[in-house]
Amino acid sequence: MDLGTIWFILWGVLWAIYFMLDGYDLGLGTLRPFFAKNDVETRIIYNTMGPFWDGNEVWLITAGGVTFAAFPKTYAVMFSSLYTPLMLLLFGLILRGVTLEFRAKNLSLRWNKFWDAMNFVGSFLPALLLGVAFANIFKGIPIDQDGILQGNLLTLLNPYGLAGGVLFVLLFAHHGALWLAFKSEGDIHARAMALAGKLWPIVAAVIVLFLAMSYGMTHLFTNYLVSPVLFGLLLIPVAGLVLTFLYRRQGRALAAWIGSAVLIFGTALFGVVGIFPALLPSSLNPAWSMTIENSASTPLTLSIMLGVALVFVPIVIIYQVWTIHLFRHPVTEKDLEYDEAY
């Protein structure tokens, strides 16, 4: 396996890790206005993601950094052709972070409601835009031979792109509900588990719809049809979907959340394998696509980066597992009394 292919796989894996980690934060922010009954429950939701959200966002920086360093031409074309949605995504994520820090600075009801609304926007909008962006990548971006987008933001808001956006919002909302169930107790725990149960069949139905649209509107299945053994990869999201259902029925919130993480990881992996070897397919002409061959850095650069990644990525993963273990206890009203609480 050549270095370009190795980095293509790592590129896809890093994006998938970001989706399954920051996904529950974005899902919680999206669900909160419809779930929390009062300010206490709102603060409990904020504090279930408080120790984790900024660490989870590191994976977005890592995925973007890998795109820049390993496939600089793809990075240039991606961040120019998808400039508007990526800037909206960036502003949404900044807004989400600001709300978590600013909300507790004032006890005014109007102040809290304003930042609560901004937190919803900063959670829902990134989830939607990530889905729209990656669905369009799966479908193919209308870029010409010079890597220039032949269209605008409305071009990206096509039925398939919007279906991807809806899928991501639902996946993250379901993921967030299970995280809240894991990090809470009593009535909140029971309601979060019940909400996850209501979202599960909707998520399953939208996944089936998205797969059907992918088959009819994209070339994602081409690699799978050429090498049928790749269909075995679909067992990953299927297993995640089934395990989430079974563990939730057993009342095992953390195990169900892990199953949901496997579902999100497998769904992202399905798309990445489908577009290989292109990182940014062109819908106008396949020859204009950004691929491993025409956008990868030099072998020396890729070799050095691989050595660094093999050392530091496992360290970051170990750190995040330790963080989850350290803050595994449910968030209660007593925790809200600490000065560090949101």
Rank of each mutant, 00 (worst) to 15 (best):
M1I: 14
M1A: 13
M1C: 10
L14K: 03
A16V: 01
M20C: 13
L21I: 07
D22T: 03
D22Y: 12
G27P: 00
G29Y: 10
P33H: 02
P33I: 00
F34K: 04
F35Q: 07
N38S: 07
D39Q: 12
R43S: 06
I44L: 10
I45P: 02
N47V: 03
F52Y: 14
E57M: 00
E57K: 00
I61V: 15
I61M: 14
T62R: 12
A63P: 15
T74S: 14
L86W: 13
F91I: 06
F91P: 02
G92K: 03
L95H: 06
R96V: 13
V98C: 07
V98D: 01
E101A: 08
K105V: 07
L109W: 15
V121T: 07
V121F: 15
S123A: 11
S123Y: 03
L125H: 12
P126V: 01
A127G: 09
A127H: 11
L128K: 05
L130R: 01
V132E: 01
A133G: 02
F134N: 03
I137G: 02
F138A: 09
I141M: 11
D144S: 06
D146S: 15
G147C: 05
I148N: 12
Q150E: 05
T155H: 12
L162E: 08
A163I: 04
G165K: 03
L171W: 05
H174Q: 10
H175E: 00
H175V: 03
A181I: 02
A181S: 05
F182H: 14
E185S: 02
D187M: 04
A190I: 09
A194G: 08
K198G: 06
P201H: 01
A205D: 05
V206S: 01
V208C: 02
V208A: 09
V208Q: 03
A212L: 15
G216N: 10
H219A: 09
T222L: 11
L225H: 14
S227F: 15
L230A: 03
L233F: 14
L233H: 09
L235H: 10
V238Y: 04
V238D: 00
G240C: 06
G240N: 06
L241R: 03
V242I: 15
L243Q: 07
F245S: 11
A253M: 09
A256D: 04
W257H: 15
W257N: 11
G259Q: 00
S260M: 09
S260K: 05
L263S: 06
I264N: 02
A268R: 09
F270P: 09
P281K: 13
P281H: 13
P281E: 06
P286R: 08
A287R: 04
A287D: 09
S289V: 02
E293K: 13
T298H: 11
P299I: 06
L300D: 04
T301G: 09
L302N: 07
L302A: 06
S303K: 15
S303Q: 14
I304W: 08
M305T: 05
L306I: 01
G307T: 01
L310G: 08
V311E: 03
V313G: 05
P314S: 00
P314Y: 04
V316W: 12
I317R: 03
I318N: 07
Y319P: 03
Q320M: 06
Q320L: 10
V321H: 12
W322C: 04
W322S: 08
T323K: 11
F327G: 08
H329Q: 11
T332D: 00
E340A: 10
Y342D: 09
